[in-house]
Amino acid sequence: MLNLHNLKGAYQLKNQGGDFAYFYNEKSNNLIVINNIDDEEIRDVVDNTDQAAYMYLTNKLNIETNLTVIWYKTEFDSSDYILIEDVNGKELYQLDLMDLENAVLGEQYKFDKKYVKLINGEVIELKFKTPVQ
């Protein structure tokens, strides 16, 4: 079970492969794919996401259906994600990561932006304002 701040609904572990864990919510048909598979590493990925980007993502997951998120930590110790809309998570959680990426991202997609939303193959970079301290 995936238990994250501000995330509602039951996300059950459905698949584990390599360094990724797949969590699926049957009611919303949403899938969260997180780099690293133990609780401490998952917390590390989540905690290294910009707060505004994190809240945007969890709010979307709480109110929308048919979303898939590929959430990963970069070599520079920050976390990024790709949010894909209008996909069937139930079909995707059975795939290994390479097949999942090919199915939803296509072979031409490059991981060159921090936060991205994909709608019908169109890449939209998400930008968030960092709060002034």
Results as ranks from 00 to 15, higher is better:
Glu85His: 14
Val33Phe: 10
Gln94Asn: 10
Glu101Tyr: 07
Gln12Thr: 14
Gln94Cys: 07
Asn30Pro: 03
Lys27Thr: 11
Glu41Phe: 12
Val45Pro: 01
Gln133Met: 08
Tyr109Trp: 14
Asn62Tyr: 09
Ala53Pro: 06
Asp86Pro: 06
Val132Gly: 06
Glu75Gly: 15
Gln133Arg: 13
Thr74Gln: 13
Glu40Ser: 08
Glu85Thr: 15
Leu95Cys: 06
Phe111Glu: 15
Asp19Gly: 11
Trp71Pro: 01
Gln94Pro: 05
Trp71Glu: 05
Asp39Phe: 04
Tyr24Ile: 02
Ala53Phe: 05
Ser28Leu: 08
Asn88Lys: 14
Gln12Leu: 11
Val104Tyr: 03
Glu75Asn: 14
Met1Asp: 12
Asn59Val: 06
Thr74Pro: 03
Tyr22His: 04
Asp80Phe: 01
Glu101Pro: 01
Gln108Asn: 15
Leu7Ser: 03
Asn35Ser: 12
Gln108His: 13
Lys60Val: 05
Phe76Met: 12
Asn6Cys: 03
Gln12Met: 12
Val116Lys: 01
Gly18Val: 08
Asp86Leu: 05
Leu31Gly: 03
Val33Met: 07
Leu92Val: 12
Thr68Trp: 09
Ala52Ser: 11
Glu91Ser: 14
Ser78Cys: 07
Val132His: 10
Tyr93Asp: 02
Leu7Asp: 02
Leu118Ile: 03
Ala103Cys: 08
Leu31Asp: 05
Val46Thr: 08
Asp86Tyr: 09
Val45Leu: 06
Thr49Asn: 09
Asn62Leu: 02
Asn35Thr: 12
Lys127Gln: 11
Leu100Arg: 00
Phe128Lys: 02
Val104Gln: 01
Phe111Ile: 07
Asp80Gly: 04
Leu4Thr: 12
Asn15Ile: 02
Val87Gln: 02
Tyr11Val: 01
Ile124Tyr: 15
Thr68Phe: 11
Asn62Cys: 03
Ile37Ala: 00
Trp71Thr: 03
Arg43Cys: 02
Leu95Ser: 06
Ala21Phe: 03
Asp44Ile: 02
Ser78Arg: 04
Phe111Tyr: 15
Ile34Lys: 01
Glu107Cys: 04
Asn88Asp: 15
Lys90Trp: 04
Asn59Arg: 13
Tyr115Glu: 03
Glu91Met: 14
Thr58Leu: 01
Tyr22Asn: 00
Leu92Cys: 03
Glu101Asp: 08
Gln133Ala: 08
Tyr22Asp: 00
Leu92Met: 05
Ala52Ile: 04
Glu40Thr: 12
Phe111Pro: 04
Phe20Ile: 10
Tyr54Ser: 00
Val46Gly: 03
Gln51Lys: 13
Lys14Val: 15
Leu83Gly: 08
Asn102Tyr: 09
Leu57Asn: 00
Leu83Arg: 05
Asp39Leu: 10
Tyr109Glu: 01
Leu83Met: 08
Leu100Ser: 00
Leu92Trp: 09
Ile119Val: 15
Val116Ile: 12
Met98Lys: 13
Leu61Gly: 04
Val104Thr: 10
Gln51Asn: 11
Gln133Gly: 05
Glu125Gln: 10
Asn3Lys: 13
Thr130Lys: 06
Tyr56Leu: 07
Ile63Gly: 10
Asp19Val: 04
